[in-house]
Design a protein around this nucleic acid. Structure first.
Lengths: 342, 342
DNA sequence: TATTTTCAGTTAAACGTTTAACTAAAAAAA
DNA sequence: TTTTTTTAGTTAAACGTTTAACTGAAAATA
């Protein structure tokens, strides 16, 4: 039979209310009693029933984690890492995470994940781009929502974002410092705000360094048609068609970078001797990537934990202001860039 | 304010017990009343409180899904697909899925996932190989467990498995049918039972076809040292060191196959003109795979749904017999094999 | 000293369901 | 007709917590 608060109360000679108060570390209970009760809790291996707690406190102890099926199944485990961070942080705070995927084709009227319909959650984390129709259906539930790596085009929500602008600057400046001027930008899905911000950073860094070749001469190639790797390959193709003098490339994410590398290899360019390359994301070390890629690291797990912290804070304080957290990125130097100064 | 069973009862002029009985489709309630109550439920958008249900019925409505961190983060979204299937099937049956990852370094005494400690689940699905110490810690909770793609070395549990033997036979026979005799087997982690079974199938098929070169002449290369892709590369290296006359390769999973392809390309073998290749798994169509790989498809999503069905069945019937389900595999013909008959 | 305040708890109601036991009315059997 | 059975519900207890309101004793204040 399951141990209940009554068993603990009996074992420590107090009322069940006292046990409950000890559980919540209420200051009205003396240290001595707390010690005694806690000892019984340990001895009996007692854990409060979520159902009973939920019933009376009107909190479920669940937070929802939502991501599109496509993102969840991506070969680079980006959002899975984010999830891992969230799950960890939730666990630390006695919460469960209910993971639900939605289709990126979600439209108005489509069924929402169960736990939402049943209002069986205290807050939601949404990772990555999701359909607007989904967010709209969600809003009527009036629950705290925190976005990760995405800002919906309407409304104003708390969110955890990558400092993409800073990343774009960092990557580009690194190439400039290594002596490059003819730096190309190859972007994946330019429709994603993150990629746009990285491009912004790229432009800004060039401007700051008084390098004015970034516009109008085809050094910036973006493409929405293909999936990331293929995109990199095709974009590189397009780039070199008209630009024989490119010496360095900033690929706006690493899946794209892999495509670029493939193109360069197929066309007998050596990295970094002929072309230097910097990526963005720091996805799994991949045997296929040769040479090891210099890149901007995005701390994925941390994004997940930050989002949950933010969410739990909103739940606790009921302060719904749309706080935004910019996660700092970091340059990781490997071997895909050659110093050509002097 | 949240809608409760009382609101529904009032709206349909019955007692709350009646509403509850309607909810469970009890035959004691007339069709007429059922209709009326259901209408009110719809109108009020009523959903029963999980907490209240859980409290009285001693069921949580949760099932746990456990996978090692390493498997969860693998670049091939194998177990994530399995999870998707489980989540879908659970949702269909009004269950939530609590996903928890554990370290593959889990040892006795390490903390278990929260929902287990708190007994907040009705059953557990374990996907992929997990540490034995973990299973042992789990056993004292005496909850239904279903394994996917893994059988622990002790005990006897219900499980959903890939028909690896059949798959190994199918793959090898396909190569034989296309005219090959010098067929090599390149296996990933031979320590995994699945790989061993595929190897068994390979040997069996060769025997059946009266091809007796499979033993002792280095056509079977297995290796546990590296990760899958690298493994494929190194194994191919090893294979061709002593076997110049290999004409076809059966790679025991597709990540390994990718490594093999890389080796073949680096050494100017053409696929399928010089070497034919068959894989196993049918992971994500990958632009990097050229030519498109003929392979054995493993229905991953289906494995997830089957496991949940099996689990829910055990929960409902309380029949704990260790039923095992072998998921049929399927040959997917693409372009990595050339017919060399006549 | 008498009164008030603080301390360290306890009592009891409430949360929203399920379900065994009960019941009143209608139908079937005697 | 009376008695029994069936139908279609209702009543009320129970599940395991939280927490506002209460209490009795000890400490502080007047």
């Amino acid at each position: 039979m399951r141990k209940t608060i009554k068993d603990v109360a009996k074992a420590s000679n107090v009322s069940i209310a006292t046990v409950s108060l000890v559980l919540h570390n209420n200051e009205r209970i003396s240290l001595e009693t707390k010690r005694r009760v806690r000892k019984s809790i340990k001895q009996l291996n007692y854990h409060p029933s979520r159902s009973a707690q939920g019933l009376v406190s009107r909190k479920t102890g669940n937070i929802g984690f939502i991501v599109t099926e496509e993102h969840f199944l991506r070969t680079e485990p980006f959002y899975t890492r984010v999830f891992l961070g969230s799950e960890f942080e939730a666990r630390e705070n006695d919460y469960y995470v209910l993971l639900a995927t939605i289709k990126s084709s979600f439209k108005k009227g489509d069924p929402l994940p169960r736990f939402i319909l049943e209002k069986n959650f205290d807050g939601i984390v949404i990772a990555g781009k999701v359909p607007e129709a989904f967010i709209e259906s969600l809003l009527k539930y009036k629950m705290p929502i925190v976005f990760i790596d995405y800002v919906p085009p309407f409304g104003d929500f708390p969110s955890v974002l990558i400092d993409n602008l800073r990343g774009g600057i960092l990557a580009t400046e690194h190439l400039i410092n290594k002596g490059y001027k003819n730096i190309a930008f190859i972007g994946g899905e330019i429709s994603h705000p993150s990629i746009r911000e990285r491009l912004q950073g790229y432009k800004l860094a060039l401007e700051r360094a008084n390098i004015y070749n970034s516009n109008g001469n085809g050094l910036v190639v973006t493409n929405d048609e293909y999936l990331s790797r293929q995109n990199g390959y095709r974009s590189a193709e397009k780039l070199f068609l008209h630009n024989k003098d490119v010496t360095a490339i900033f690929a706006s994410n690493n899946a794209t970078a892999v495509g670029v590398i493939q193109y360069l290899k197929d066309n007998n360019f050596n990295i970094p001797n002929d072309i230097s390359l910097i990526g963005f994301d720091d996805i799994e070390a991949d045997m296929m990537i040769d040479p090891p890629l210099t890149t901007i690291r995005v701390p994925k797990v941390e994004m997940g934990t930050e989002a949950v912290q933010l969410l739990l804070n909103i739940i606790k304080t009921k302060n719904y202001t749309a706080k935004k957290i910019l996660i700092p990125i970091e340059l990781v130097v490997r071997e895909s860039i050659k110093n050509i100064n002097y």
